[in-house]
């Protein structure tokens, strides 16, 4: 695998062992899985970001206007359970899902990453306290925890982001901790400590860049889970609220007519499937790309 990557280096330069390996993105693109992942993800992201702008011009209806009777076959993909254009709602339905997934993942990364690095770097009692609390949170299934929080706080956007983000944090913290443990005894850390650089700066300046590889893999994986979790919650009626156009919600609203007017369900299912497969492939490719770096160094 490593030779394949090295020979496919477009510059044709000899393997570099200097401190500047080829960019991660380039190494991801060099793998066929990485390319597929990037393309799939990009397609859905473009759809989600620009879809809302195209919904009305393309279909003639906003995602909220009534086009026909419910489950009619007018328009390209027919109408949904309230007679709104399925295509318009589909185009409008990915933006919030994507936004919330990214925000939740980012929150999980920040909180989990900080806790993990802190635990590994501090060791001792603080490590034990953080990691045992972590274990407690990990013992609760993610969706059950989310259901509980949303039932108490109500299905609001920030609740979704915070709940999904925080339930990711313990898993990320574990990865961050073990990655930190591996670099913590390196000479450059020792040197920084000798110069009595403040701990937070050592964590931020020395440790973080050196565990970025495993963390970015984890980020990709967590993004996949975030998409799944938020879409599931919307499907269960606890995520996005009607009349919002949302892929998860659309599946729930239109599944009753699956045999009659399947587009309301199928389009959303395809989009969510492509997005999760894409981000998953991308995460795998990043894993291999960054593993390469560590081997070479």
């Amino acid at each position: 695998m490593s030779t394949h990557i090295l020979t496919s280096d477009p510059t044709g330069a000899p393997p570099r062992t200097s401190s500047k390996p080829p960019g991660v993105l380039r190494r991801v693109w060099a793998q066929s899985e990485g390319r597929v992942g990037i393309v799939l993800t990009a397609v859905v992201v473009v759809l989600a970001v620009f879809g809302p702008l195209l919904a009305a011009p393309l279909t003639g209806y906003t995602p909220y206007q009534f086009a026909d009777r419910p489950f009619a076959h007018s328009g390209v993909f027919g109408t949904d359970n309230l007679g709104r254009s399925v295509l318009a709602r589909f185009l409008d339905g990915g933006r919030l899902l994507l936004l919330y997934s990214v925000l939740a993942t980012a929150l999980g990364m920040v909180v989990g990453g900080a806790l993990g690095m802190l635990a590994a770097y501090a060791r001792g009692w603080l490590d034990s306290v953080i990691m045992r609390l972590n274990d407690i949170v990990l013992a609760i299934p993610q969706l059950v925890f989310a259901l509980l929080a949303i039932t108490v706080l109500g299905p609001k956007g920030w609740v979704l982001v915070v709940v999904i983000g925080l339930t990711h944090a313990p898993r990320i913290a574990r990865v961050a901790r073990s990655a930190t443990l591996r670099v913590i005894n390196e000479d450059y850390i020792r040197a920084a400590e000798m110069y009595s650089v403040p701990r937070w700066r050592i964590i931020g300046r020395e440790i973080l860049p050196n565990i970025a590889g495993p963390l970015s893999v984890e980020a990709g994986l967590r993004l996949t889970y975030s998409i799944g979790a938020i879409a599931s919650l919307s499907f269960l009626g606890l995520g996005m609220q009607p009349p919002t156009a949302d892929w998860g919600l659309m599946i729930n609203e239109n599944r009753i007519a699956l045999s009659v007017q399947p587009w309301g369900v199928l389009l959303s299912v395809f989009a969510i499937a492509v997005l999760t497969i894409g981000t998953n492939l991308l995460a795998d490719a990043i894993a291999r790309a960054t593993a390469q770096t560590t081997v070479e160094e």
Partner: peptide, 12 residues
């Protein structure tokens, strides 16, 4: 519509 009839006919 014709399409509706065909679609549902196939499914059912």
């Amino acid at each position: 519509s014709r399409r509706g009839l065909l679609g549902s006919g196939a499914a059912l």
